[in-house]
Design a protein around this nucleic acid. Structure first.
Lengths: 198, 198
DNA sequence: GCATGATGTTGACATCATCTACATCCAAGT
DNA sequence: ACTTGGATGTAGATGATGTCAACATCATGC
């Protein structure tokens, strides 16, 4: 028998059939964080709320993340992975190079609007740990642009990315830009650039 | 004689020739906030540090701002005003319409890099109180675009703003884009769009 | 069986935003 | 001059939060 009695919270867990060890706390924390971020906003994304939602003590997350910032960075990295997948899927359904670029732009903007807090987090400056996120995005867009016109160099790809990202970002703040970011209009915006390339 | 003795901090102020009333605390807080934001980062931008820097108690800022968010919103509004002024000045030195658009783009990107934390704050979602900031920006860019080609409607202006904003924002995160955002290269990026317009 | 590292828990701390009650100053009436 | 009321500032407390150190529990290989 240990010198101190079994803590009440553990007894409670046992009573509910819970286990002392969570099993996959790291993953559960990321999922809970994504959920909290969208429902409660970044202010509501607190380590305590996270731990509660995962049914775990307040200090437990520190076994998996050095600090809150590390958790947010990982979360942002996850966001980049999802965005990349959605762009890939959107492009796969198109047959022409300009069609692919337009589809990727629509997916980018749609992602920003559906998960707008996540989108903000991703570009808030906390680099994701593997640094992979934005690099992979850039490469995917570069490839799409490269398959287009003749005079398509790196600068052209940066221009395309800037245009798409700016449209997605500004649409979150300005209702006027949001109108230009509606799916049918995105094509028109991208076409202005395509005209400049070809 | 009041029931409680004169607080030590006031005595200290008196001793240093300070006054009980600050004079222009509201303005001093905004200046201090702008300074702290750039030197310490958003995490270091705390009401305590602000009050200390202004030589005033911790609760004093609440006489001028409802809460921290209101202060940040005002600060962001100030940022918009500065950015607008810099764009205006940059455009005034140019004689042609494309030249003005290019100059404004360079000013926009330069502002984002010089005051990158302020730039992030401005587009972090906390709308500035008068809502004037981003609207004025949009109008100025719309005017610049309107003075250009034949087929320049609202959509064109949104496209221009998106391109410029995206370039400025991405350059803060990605070294690759930062290269495309160096002053000489900004012109090239904008020209890609101008080619699409004309 | 049993040591040992990984995983969770508890309790405490410092910092922060914010509130309440009070003090001080300034300016307008009188 | 004197008072009086509103604007401005202060002190102290409160609750929430991120983080840490010491301890408990589990799972796994020897």
């Amino acid at each position: 028998m240990p010198s101190s009695p079994v803590p009440s919270s553990i007894a409670r867990l046992r009573g509910k059939g819970g286990r002392y060890h969570h099993g996959n706390l790291r993953g559960a924390l990321i999922v809970a964080a994504a959920g909290l971020l969208e429902t409660e906003g970044e202010a509501g994304l607190t380590l305590r709320a996270l731990a509660d939602r995962a049914g775990v003590s307040r200090a437990a997350p520190y076994r998996h993340f050095a600090d809150k910032e590390a958790l947010l960075a990982t979360l942002a990295g996850e966001g980049f992975r999802v965005l990349d997948r959605e762009m890939e899927r959107a492009a796969a359904m198109e047959t022409t190079a300009p069609g692919r670029l337009r589809a990727m732009a629509r997916a980018y903007v749609a992602f920003a609007q559906r998960y707008h807090r996540m989108f903000r987090l991703m570009f808030a400056g906390a680099a994701d740990p593997e640094g992979r996120g934005s690099g992979q995005l850039r490469r995917r867009l570069s490839d799409a642009v490269a398959g287009m016109g003749s005079a398509t160099d790196g600068m052209t790809a940066m221009t395309a990315w800037s245009l798409i990202h700016g449209l997605a970002a500004l649409a979150l703040d300005s209702p006027v830009v949001a109108e230009a970011a509606r799916a049918p209009n995105v094509d028109g915006v991208v076409d202005l650039l395509i005209g400049g390339i070809g």
